[in-house]
């Protein structure tokens, strides 16, 4: 009979295989020298990556997505800083309900957000554009930013601010000299997370995309054409490497922030 610890290890092994199965297959098919995405494998090639370089529509989609992701990251982090600072430092009326409301998009189905924004934009008579996607993305990224930034602001000892004030600094300078340097790692992490989420978001973008596709919308369009699939695998591999590197950078900054404020690191993301 297996000991209990072994059962756990077996379970974790099987679970990790299940979890990583798609992520492992992605590069496998990206380098597979066959125009059909299936087994058996045919041999090694990098031609699918070369195909990406010459696909003009893809480049447009990437540019759109980058523009959206950067703008989203900036705005949702700004909103996140304000909300996280307010909720961790000040007791104001109805704080819990207000915060709950702002965090709501985290549990709301994205289709609801997509649909409701679509309705508003159409009813108001606006045109769908990249900006409509940006608005939707800021809405769903802000709660994630708040979650990250709240822990950064919460780790901030309030007496540091008071000390700065007591030593003769103004509130404005205290913010820039003491608070900002200490929460900066959290801000960097928040920017990166929002950027990554926005870059990969499909459901809202699909509803709100006008004539200009984002990267996931472009991918969705291509999934119908079997001959395009191998180059999509190559694209997916690049995106995966990019996302994971960004996350590693974000996590590095988050940890550095925790070390700086002198609090033990516990757990990981979110």
């Amino acid at each position: 009979m297996l000991r209990k610890g072994h059962i756990f290890k077996w379970y974790m092994g099987v679970f990790l295989v299940f979890l990583y199965a798609p992520a492992i297959l992605l590069p496998v098919f990206a380098f597979n020298d066959s125009s059909i995405v299936s087994f058996p494998l045919k041999g090694f090639t990098t031609k699918w990556f070369a195909v990406l370089q010459t696909t003009e529509a893809l480049h447009v989609a990437v540019r759109n997505s980058l523009m959206i992701a950067v703008t989203t990251a900036l705005f949702s982090t700004l909103f996140g800083v304000l909300a996280a600072r307010a909720s961790t430092r000040f007791a104001f009326p109805a704080r819990r309900s207000i915060m709950g409301f702002i965090m709501l998009p985290m549990v709301l189905p994205e289709i609801i957000i997509g649909v409701s924004l679509l309705v508003v934009i159409i009813q108001m008579g606006f045109e769908l554009s990249l900006w409509s996607i940006i608005l939707g993305h800021i809405l769903i990224c802000t709660p994630f930013c708040i979650a990250i930034l709240s822990s950064a602001f919460m780790n901030l000892d309030q007496s540091l601010e008071e000390a700065s004030f007591d030593l003769g600094q103004t509130r404005w300078n205290t913010f820039w000299l003491v608070i900002m340097p200490l929460v900066m790692p959290g801000i960097v992490a928040s920017l990166l997370i929002a950027f990554t989420i926005s870059l990969d978001e499909f459901i809202i973008a699909f509803f709100l995309a006008g004539t200009e596709p984002t990267l996931p919308v472009y991918i969705w369009g291509q999934l119908r054409f079997p001959q395009k699939l191998p180059s999509l695998m190559a694209l997916g591999t690049i995106l995966l490497v990019l996302s994971v590197s960004l996350l590693l950078v974000a996590d590095y900054f988050r940890r550095r922030g925790i070390r700086k404020t002198g609090i033990e690191s516990k757990g990981g993301f979110l």
């Binding site: 304000l82 909300a83 104001f92 009326p93 309705v119």
Partner: peptide, 27 residues
Amino acid sequence: EGAQGLFLISPTLAFTLLLLAVPLVMV
């Protein structure tokens, strides 16, 4: 404190009201 907190949170709250509450009501 209350006023300062509300002041700080107001941009985020206004954005969420405008882009979540209003659209939901319209739906």
